[in-house]
């Protein structure tokens, strides 16, 4: 049988890789600013709210949340494959669906800020 390129795998892998890079590089900084620097008073809450008030900032933050969650979904899916539970069929959408739902919630939260 002649092998054919997998047309969807590159998209999934790029989102996974992008999510991994973003998680490693940006998530700790985001957690530090929102979870430590603002409560400790090192960064004024008003300044942070002014930043997040910009629609472009909200779009970037929600996009990052999507990448973080997509990375989790893809990693978790393949972790189950490695453990012999399958995970390459329809059940894979459970993980990606959860990532999309989480992104939707982040979007709603961003709109309400």
């Amino acid at each position: 049988m002649t092998a054919k390129p997998d047309k969807t795998a590159p998209l999934f892998w790029l989102l996974f890789a992008g999510g991994g890079t973003a998680s490693a590089m940006l998530l700790p900084a985001m957690v530090f600013v929102t979870g430590v620097a603002v409560p400790a008073g090192w960064v004024a809450e008003d300044d942070l709210m002014a930043l997040i008030g910009n629609p472009l900032t909200r779009l970037v933050v929600v996009s990052l949340v999507f990448l973080f969650l997509f990375h989790w979904a893809h990693r978790f899916r393949y972790a189950l494959v490695d453990l012999g539970f399958g995970g390459l069929g329809k059940q894979a959408w459970l993980f990606y669906g959860t990532a999309l739902a989480g992104t939707g919630l982040a979007g709603l939260a961003a709109l309400r800020l």
Binding site: T2, A3, K4, P5, V81, D82
Partner: peptide, 17 residues
Amino acid sequence: RSDVVTAHDGIWRCTYV
């Protein structure tokens, strides 16, 4: 090489264990 390498059972199957 790309057809075999990028096939469903090629590089994308690797989960980087």
